[in-house]
Structures are given as C-alpha cells and as structure tokens.
C-alpha cells in the first residue's frame, strides 16, 4: 500500500462520516418541539394551505424519503430560510463564517507560537523550576473557563489599558486581525495548555531516544539536534492531537465570540437558540461537524507528510 491509496482510503472514510453527521442533524431537527408547518404558517391557516405546505416541505412523505430529501438539499447547499433573518441560511452562514475562520486560525497560530517553545523549555528543564512554573501556569489556565479569561483580558487590556478594541470585527483585513487578536488570544490559551502538555510529554519521550544520541554522536549542533531530530518526531504525536482539538476550538469560538461580540457563526449559534431559529442551528451543527472532519483529514495529511511510515 502506498501513500496514494492510503489517502484515497482516508478520503473514502470521510463519506460515511458526512452521511452520519447529516442523519444526526436530521434526527435532531425531527425532535424539535412544535410543528414545522405551523411554524411557517402561524395558527390561522386553512386546512388546504396546511396540506399544500406540508406537501411542499415534503412532510407527507415517509421518514427515509424525507431524510434523503434533506441530505440531497444539504449536498446542494440548501438549508432553508432563517426564521429570524428571513434570508437563506446558506447566505447567512457564509456571511458569518469568515470571522470564525480568522479567529480560529489566528488562535491556532498563537497557541503554537506559545506552546512549542514553552514545551521545549519545560521538557529540557523537566522537574526543575522553569518546568514547574510553566506547568503550574498552564494548569491554572486549563481550570479557567474561556469566557472568564476573555472577560479578564477584555477588562484589563481593552477597557482599562485601551490597548485593544473592546470587541467587534472592524472593516478590512488589518482591522479584522486587530479586533480578533484578543478573542484569539483568549481561545489560544486553553488550546496552548493542552498542546504544551502533550508536546512536553512527546519531547521527553523522544529526547532520550537512541537516534537523538546518534545525532549528537555525529557532532551536530544542539539546535539542529533539537529542531530537526527531536521536534519533528515529537510533532508527529502532537499533530493528531491538534486535529482532535479543532472541535474544542470551535466550541471555544462559540464562547469567545459571545464575550467579544464577534459576528461569527459561534455567536450566531447562541443567538439562534434564543431566537428559536432552528434551520440555522441545524445548518450550523452540520457545517461545524463537517469542518471538524475536514480538519481531521488535514491533520492526517500533515502527519503523513511528517511521518514516512504512515501508509506503509
């Protein structure tokens, strides 16, 4: 088996995942309280109209047919109309998605920039004070809820010190990044804590490996030994964790976007719950789950690139 077939196999795996995600979301939608037809028409419709709308929504057909119909719509990007905004859900989500993508991407970059060097310091000074300090701070960080970190940063750095905007999104790329820095930092701290913990363990596992001794025996510079031989092997173990953490990152985005009033899909999700905007909730659950599957696929590909043994 070579890398090409391995990748094809991995891609084939993702199709049943998507179908399953669709089924779960469909079932969730069927469990919704209230009758969708009266949600559309209100209480004063004639029987004829109710029958017409029922047929139009496909609700007179059997459940499996409805499921297929729903999945077909999803494939075409058809999620219905938002009850609160009265525009197509797909358009609403496309408008809100960029903010969330920038937020999560930026926070991932910040988390990596924090976690990688700190994990190395902690591992190289294992069980001495730099390690204990770094681990102690991150342990407290892991026990602090994201919304509270956000509120603290918001108060201190934005409201009091005026170093950053209090929230919002701004206009244009520069302002987007500027406005999203604090939310991204908030989100990054808990992610960095998880990453640091895993990477520190991985570095400790690798640093005593024979091949690291052999690299030293070749007379390589310490920086090359760490940066090439240790880091690369340690990252392999951590990359799959990054993939698994994308879900938590998106969950955290729901919270940070609410704290910092970022117009992304996370805030949209919370707003939609209070507005009982079910089509939006349904579509968002689906979109975010698909997003996580794609992130998992991406990390698998990165892992394949880092580790020549994958797929062999």
């Amino acid at each position: 088996m070579n890398k090409g077939t391995w990748l094809l196999g991995r891609l084939a795996q993702i199709v049943p995942s998507f179908v399953f995600i669709g089924i779960v979301v469909f079932v969730l939608a069927r469990l919704l309280p209230g009758d969708p037809v009266s949600a559309v028409l209100g209480d004063h419709a004639t029987d004829a109209t109710v029958a017409r709308i029922t047929a139009q929504l496909g609700l007179d057909r059997s459940i499996p047919v409805q499921l297929l119909h729903f999945l077909g719509g999803v494939v075409q990007g058809e999620f219905g109309t938002s009850i609160a905004y009265r525009i197509p859900v797909s358009r609403l989500i496309l408008e809100r998605l960029p903010a969330t993508l920038i937020l999560t991407g930026l926070s991932m970059a910040i988390a990596l920039a924090l976690a990688v060097p700190l994990a190395f310091i902690a591992a190289l000074k294992a069980n001495r004070w730099p390690d204990l300090l770094i681990r102690g701070v991150f342990q407290v960080g892991l026990s602090t809820p994201i919304f509270y970190v956000g509120l603290l940063l918001l108060t201190v750095l934005a409201a009091w010190a005026h170093l950053f905007p209090v929230g919002g999104y701004g206009e244009g790329w520069g302002e987007h990044l500027w406005h999203l820095f604090l939310p991204a930092l908030t989100l990054a701290l808990s992610f960095a804590a998880v990453l640091m913990r895993s990477l520190r363990g991985a570095v400790l596992d690798v640093i005593n490996a024979e091949f690291v001794d052999f690299a030293r025996a070749k007379g390589l510079r310490a920086r090359l030994v760490l940066g090439r031989h240790v880091l690369r092997n340690a990252l392999i173990a951590t990359v799959s964790l990054v993939g698994l953490q994308v879900g938590s990152l998106l969950g955290g985005a729901v919270i940070t976007e609410s704290v910092f009033a970022v117009p992304g899909v996370g805030r949209l999700m919370v707003e939609s719950i209070f507005a009982r905007d079910y089509p939006v909730i349904q579509a968002l659950t689906l979109v975010l789950a698909v997003f996580v599957s794609l992130a998992l696929l991406a990390t698998d590909i990165v892992q394949m690139w880092l580790d020549p043994r994958v797929g062999k």
Binding site: I21, L244, G247, M269, V270, L288, A289
Partner: peptide
C-alpha cells in the same frame, strides 16, 4: 469525535 463537543451539547 468529529462533532465539536460544545457545539453538539449546545445544539441538543
């Protein structure tokens, strides 16, 4: 695991 935990909890 492909469902974001918090998002799924919120959806439910």
């Amino acid at each position: 695991v492909t469902f974001p935990f918090l998002v799924l909890v919120i959806a439910i």
